[in-house]
Design a protein around this nucleic acid. Structure first.
Lengths: 221, 221
DNA sequence: GGATCAATGTGATCTGGGTCACATCCAGCG
DNA sequence: CGCTGGATGTGACCCAGATCACATTGATCC
């Protein structure tokens, strides 16, 4: 199964170089090129791609904005964006990753590493330059709690209750939840009541807080 | 300048293999071996090391605990710990990184990648396996940077209102907020009302959701 | 001064949401 | 079978919370 790649960079020489490197690989296929962010969006309207290799510094629409838009309209997680830039700055990297990039590499990596990274990204995983990885860890290692160890209290909930809790955590009223689940509003109320009792909470507001704090729901997700 | 490495793994065959690979490099030197976490601490009492290559699953003291202790007593960021394990689980990886590991790799990486990772770690940077990097980004990408996407509606809030919103987002009732801010409950109610009006929300539940989604408050933070 | 506007504070009123009591359904078990 | 227990569903009651109308303070401008 070949990986379809689109190259986005404002310098023709760089694009030609990347294309040369990628085309030398039997499992990679360059299906398009773009000279800036706006152009990239047009190209992606025409062709199906698995991975977009994106430069950051570009005229008209920079790589971060382009990445944000590509990820916003991505369906089924495709295409994924691999950002490749010259400048090793935390601001650029974090902005790109926040915008949805699946990978962040510096242009000084050896070609084999770029090729490996493209394959990794196509598989759905991620690669980040070592200097940026260190900064990521510096910032977030402390928050790596017991990991996916969900609040044990959540385990007490039945399937239905968990379903209702998710809707509560989206800000829906009991009536809206009732409509969504095809049940009487009174029923939703008892479900919520049971949820609060099991989780030892006072009201739905605290339920929402717990949902976020426990990782049952995550911002943006 | 050579990088001094200590290998920690309970299987003699694995240690021998690693030593063989590392010794083939002129810039790397294996200065010690240990068969478990406790042993590693003893070895590090005797020798100076730049990088510890650490297995996770070991008897007596596992790699996570050993990593924690090594990092706790590390001086000037030395030695750094590179965790190398067979199992690609989020729980193991996050636990190791939280304990202070500078790198997390799977044992199925090609030897060159391990060598490159050791050099990267010795330089003070970090490497994380792609599958784990993806999970890291899934969890933290939303928290990166100030985020140009901070909901502009939040800017309309006055200082007092923002203060109240923060308390609402912790699950406090109007009465509790009133006590905290030294105001009548009725006052808190109007503040909340104004907040809802400005943010175009229906009730405090949606306010909590917005607070989390906009990054005004973050889980754990 | 006085006129205006935003921020803040308070009480009165009405409704969504939480609590309680109870019914139904189904699985497991003696 | 009948019994028990958990999950689910429903209606009635009451209060926290949302809405409204209004007072006070202080800054700004003519």
């Amino acid at each position: 199964m070949t990986v379809r790649v689109v190259i986005v960079d404002d310098q023709a020489l760089v694009r030609a170089g990347f294309r040369m490197v990628l085309d030398s690989q039997p499992d990679l296929e360059v299906v398009g090129e773009a000279i800036d962010g706006a152009d990239a969006l047009r190209v992606l309207d025409r062709v199906e791609a698995d991975v977009v290799v994106m430069d950051l510094r570009m005229p008209t629409m920079d790589g971060v904005e382009a990445t944000r838009r590509i990820c916003a309209r991505a369906t089924g997680g495709r295409p994924r964006v691999l950002v490749l830039t010259t400048f090793d700055t935390e601001a650029d990297a974090f902005a790109a990753l926040r915008a949805g990039a699946s990978a962040f590499l510096l242009k000084n990596v050896p070609p084999e590493e770029l090729l490996a990274a493209i394959r990794v990204v196509a598989e759905g995983d991620s690669v980040v330059a070592p200097s940026i990885t260190r900064r990521l860890l510096d910032r977030f290692a402390g928050q790596l709690g017991p990991g996916p160890t969900e609040d044990p209290r959540l385990a007490q909930l039945t399937e239905r209750e968990r379903e209702v809790l998710l809707l509560v955590a989206q800000g829906l009223s009991n009536a809206e939840i009732a409509a969504r689940v095809h049940v009487a509003e009174a029923t939703v109320k008892t479900h919520v009541g049971r949820i609060l009792a099991k989780l030892q909470l006072r009201d739905r507001v605290q339920a929402v807080v717990l949902a976020y704090e426990s990782g049952l729901v995550t911002p943006g997700g």
